[in-house]
Design a protein around this nucleic acid. Structure first.
Length: 462
RNA sequence: UCCUCAGUAGCUCAGCUGGUUAGAGCACAUGACUGUUAAUCAUGGGGUCCCUGGUUCGAGCCCAGGCUGGGGAGCCA
């Protein structure tokens, strides 16, 4: 008999029809006359309740049905006599695929700390919390593609392995097939990458942006959505060595268009979660963060603040707030400053723009004041920077000067620079950290709890 | 990488001023219970007190070094 998902069964009207459910047992309880088995298959946060008459089954079989074991159960779908669920399955046949010895199975029917669950990343998807988070993660990935597709953007696959070391977005992981213990050397003693797989030094990408720009300058509107790697020794609840990033890039967009797009997109995604992930969000709201739903709704309901960096500095200086780090025009804002603006002063998302040029990347469009560039960062409550973006410098001479000023090897960027030589146009784009988005949507506090298998310094076990 | 806190039963934690045989709740096992909702009640088993070294008559507790984890900071998305 073909089985149905728990999600399907829970929304089916019961009429004693025969059904089959397959999944993992969450709890078993009962007495001599009746046994209740809560089964979950990951299709929804809710379990389906299976009711069995212990006298109709082998006593040993009932005993073996324990938390974590996998089962296939056939029975009748009936209205539930209890109050906790609309329907239940009256079991006729119970088959156990695999037992889970309660003495050694780490997930028991009790609360476990998120720290403990990180140590058993192979099993934590079976918990309510991680089931909810990963279902939401899926929904957000899907919604991102939907959002862009509906608006005429093309999904561009930019390379994971890159030969460009000039992106300036952080330390990189080397990709090589050379023998690490005895690499070939040149006469001067340095490693001879001519003999490596690509005949040059290569790394895992820290951003698809530069290639994304090449796509936008042909297809008009593109986005990337792929893995990104940073070899920084970052040990925080907001950083991963391997994470996923969404990077739209738009020809003929200026900074204001960029800000319009990012605000519209983030609101679309939050609304999508509220509309499509209700059960999972309600669970997270109840168990982890009582203000989650309210905070999500508030992002949808309010306009983001748009504030030039220079005005932000003035607000911070005249705030009367004591900061550990002094606020000074020309320095990058510290976490405490960003948090003050977002969580205290405005109490809603803030887009900061027009940053001092010397604290930003070489490719950002220079303003006429000679001091600032058309950069923007989107700051979210509790997360900090969730998006970083800018209008790009489309003037060949200005871009080249900036490359030289910042000591970047211009030869390795010849292809990027050529786009400004041939048919250059104003364009803009941004990078959205996917896991930071999921942090915000789920209310989770640690980025390691919103990606199935987190990669952080000293952690690549699973 | 820096600052800071922590590491005791499968999990979450308590353990007083350094003193005999290290405790609790949950989980687990056994039993009871006619419909439960992380069922309830009773009974029971369960310990490399993170590791190494030191101080002391005596260390879970004090000291040094290390390992691991949390929180904060930096780098950023």
């Amino acid at each position: 008999m073909k089985h149905q998902s728990v999600k399907q069964l829970l929304s089916t009207s019961p009429s004693n029809q025969n059904v089959c459910v397959k999944g993992w047992v969450r709890t078993r309880r009962g007495n001599k006359n009746v046994v209740f088995i809560a089964v979950n298959d990951g299709s929804t946060i809710h379990n389906i309740q299976v009711v069995a008459d212990p006298n109709a089954f082998d006593e040993n079989l009932i005993k073996r049905i324990q938390t974590g074991c996998s089962v296939s159960i056939q029975g009748k779908l009936v209205p539930s006599q209890g109050s906790g669920q609309p329907v239940e399955v009256q079991a006729n046949e119970i088959h156990i695929y695999g037992e889970a010895d309660p003495e050694t199975y780490p997930l028991q029917k009790k609360g476990h700390s998120l720290e403990f669950l990180r140590e058993i990343a192979h099993l934590r998807p079976r918990t309510n919390t991680f089931g909810a988070v990963f279902r939401i993660r899926h929904a957000m990935a899907f919604a991102i593609h939907q959002y862009f597709n509906d608006r005429g953007f093309y999904y561009l696959h930019t390379p994971i392995i890159t030969g460009s070391d000039a992106e300036g977005a952080g330390a990189m992981f080397r990709v090589t097939t050379l023998d690490a213990s005895a690499p070939p050397k040149k006469e001067d003693g340095t490693i001879d990458y001519d003999q490596d797989f690509f005949g040059r030094e290569t790394n895992l990408t820290v951003s698809g942006q530069l290639e994304g720009e090449l796509g936008a300058l042909a297809l008009g509107l593109i986005y990337t959505f792929g893995p990104t790697f940073r070899a920084e020794n970052s040990n925080t609840a907001r950083h991963l060595a391997e994470f996923w990033m969404i990077e739209p890039e738009m020809a003929f967009y200026e900074l204001a268009d960029n800000m319009d797009l990012v605000e519209d997109m983030l609101k679309y995604l939050v609304r999508y979660a509220l509309d499509n992930c209700k059960d999972d969000l309600e669970f997270l709201n109840k168990m982890y963060d009582n203000e989650l739903l309210q905070r999500l709704q508030s992002v949808v309901d309010h306009q983001f603040v748009r504030l030039p960096y220079t005005e932000a500095v003035e607000i911070l200086k005249s705030s009367g707030q004591k900061f550990e780090y002094k606020v000074e025009w020309g320095t990058d804002l510290q976490s405490e400053h960003e948090r003050y603006l977002v969580e205290k002063h405005f109490q809603k998302p803030v887009i900061l723009f027009d940053y001092p040029k010397h604290i930003k990347a070489f490719y950002m469009k220079q303003n006429d004041d000679g001091k600032t560039v058309r950069a923007m960062d989107v700051l979210f409550p509790g997360i900090g920077e969730i998006v970083g973006g800018s209008q790009r410098e489309e003037d060949y001479e200005k871009l080249l000067n900036r490359v030289k000023e910042m000591g970047i090897h211009e030869q390795s960027l010849w292809w990027y620079l050529e786009t400004r030589k041939f048919g250059t146009v104003p364009h803009a784009g941004f990078g959205l950290g996917f896991e930071r988005l999921i942090l915000f949507i789920t209310g989770m506090a640690n980025i390691r709890d919103v990606i199935p298998f987190p990669r952080t310094p000293l952690n690549a076990e699973f």
